[in-house]
Design a protein around this nucleic acid. Structure first.
Lengths: 204, 204
DNA sequence: GAATAATCTCTACATTGTTCAGATATGGAG
DNA sequence: CTCCATATCTGAACAATGTAGAGATTATTC
């Protein structure tokens, strides 16, 4: 564990994001369920109460970490997509795989991040479900990817209406099950194979 | 909150399972992350330390709750299967849907149960993954269901090798996403439709 | 440079998981 | 029936936690 920082100025300068950074790091290392507000404050070199000027309670801080991680996941998927340019069916298929792999790889790198954003700390209210989904960047990435596949003929037309929910559910489910040890790691590639074949993706 | 019990005998009689029962109830109501050992002991009418004769630590108790819930989920799915007898393709297809629905319904009834058994408290070691999966009752239910479908011709043969992982991943993923509010509730039926169509289940 | 606001510290409190010495009851041997 | 070993439970204690509030310290604005 890193030595708690000692600062010279009374005012920290950017305590809010310093707390967020420290909390993010510690969530990755130990899981959100073991995060201690006091430990975060100590790591930043500040008294426990100081945190309450920026976060109403410990759970608010955790939620903010979650919000940031949602963006990071989307970033990671976007980066993966950028490595697969092109407009044809072949490229569309490669993007589909890249998208799924990125999801799984991101989760595998820091399982505690994945657990946080899809666990109880970050669950959405019933009201905002529809809004949330349509505005989520990751969801839109998948949508355009499937639309590309559809246009280039790399997706069975009759399955188009189900492609999004099927893909997202399967990729998310496999990732979650593998991370918690209910499926072996190598089953993710099998899942992708199965998804492609069952959706008729990339049939030559 | 129920009044803490007061018992007359010094020895409780069946403290181990009483603690398990109380813990299970409280996990359902408040989530495993908010479970308090002291509260469980108080509910049973016993001092906090008494629990340590049966569970090494708080997390052991939680894990035991999880183990019981795994069985309950399998029971629930078995019950759902019993309502759909028959040997033909039609029955096999109905069982397939019943299995998926049971999974989702069980999780919807008590989301905190689902969160517990598929969260960090119940994750399996890497070593026991293979053993665990093959010995899991729920997994075998799905296996025989898909085998029935395959034999009766209600499943595209080329997809047979992928059917299990695809189905489990998709059903689990959709359930998890819906429970945490990332997908609307009614999308589960769409998912089942999509799964059936993409696997070629029940094509007349 | 003085008043006001923002930022941070200190102390305090209730609650938690956990430990351990000791109290209490139970079951079996004589 | 009695006594003793053993299983079972209690009580007090400890360190750590989240959080509240009063006060100290620095920044900002006029």
């Amino acid at each position: 564990m890193a030595m708690p920082k000692v600062r010279e100025t009374y005012h920290h300068g950017d305590l809010e994001s310093a707390l967020l950074d420290a909390a993010t790091k510690m969530v990755g290392a130990d899981g959100a369920e073991h995060l201690s507000l006091r430990a975060v404050a100590a790591e930043v070199g500040v008294s426990p109460s100081a945190a309450y000027h920026y976060y109403q309670e410990k759970d608010s801080l955790i939620s903010c970490v979650g919000a940031r991680l949602f963006e990071e996941l989307a970033d990671f998927q976007e980066q993966a997509l950028l490595k697969v340019p092109g407009k044809g069916a072949r490229a569309a298929r490669a993007r589909f795989r890249a998208l799924g792999r990125a999801y799984f790889e991101w989760a595998s790198m820091e399982p505690n991040f994945f657990r946080l954003i899809f666990g109880c700390y970050c669950s959405a209210d019933e009201v905002e479900v529809e809004v949330l989904r349509d505005n989520s960047r990751a969801w839109r990435l998948l949508q355009t990817c499937l639309e590309d596949l559809y246009r280039t003929g790399g997706l069975i037309p009759a399955l188009r209406p189900y492609a999004e929910i099927l893909t997202w559910s399967a990729v998310h489910g496999a990732t979650a099950l593998i991370i918690e040890g209910h499926l072996p790691k190598d089953s993710f590639e099998s899942l992708l194979d199965g998804l492609e074949r069952s959706l008729g993706i990339g049939i030559k």
